[in-house]
Amino acid sequence: MNCAQVRDSLAEYQLGGLSAEERRGVAQHLEDCADCRAELAALERLDELLTPAERVRAPADMWSRIQPRLRRRRAPWWQGLLASPRPAIAAAAAMLLAVAGIWLTTRGPATTIETEALASGYQEQQIVAQWSSPLADDAALGLMFASLNGDVVEP
């Protein structure tokens, strides 16, 4: 396998998605090729970033550690609730409320705009400016460009 072939299958390799034969080929190449090893390391680094789910899961004993502290603070009216078999439901509801609260407070007001088509001369400038940016979407900007009014009639 050459570098290009290996790079092409590196992501699948890392995810464990290749056939045994392909895996051997990639592994063999990696032994000899520092560049491809670096590429694999970069993918693995990204993978660490990609798996926040594991870190999101609260530790299994979180609630049992929090609970005694709450009790010490002595707040009788919810003590019974915590002691009841419903803390998980209550916690879930609380989390929902918390998430809803965050969601509601971080969402800006919706913008409603009465809009109409804009003169193509101005639009073209905007398309050109946007097309000059990094990560320009050629297909979408080309579609806008081609849809502008005022085209010259074809010969």
Partner: peptide, 30 residues
């Protein structure tokens, strides 16, 4: 309802404390 509200505040405080301590990262927050 009062319990739920109190727990919501509490949960937010706990999440904030854990996040400040680097223990919990929310998804899409990397």
């Amino acid at each position: 309802p009062v319990t739920l509200c109190a727990l919501a505040v509490l949960a937010m405080a706990v999440v904030a404390a854990l996040r400040a301590g680097g223990l919990v990262a929310l998804p899409g927050d990397v």
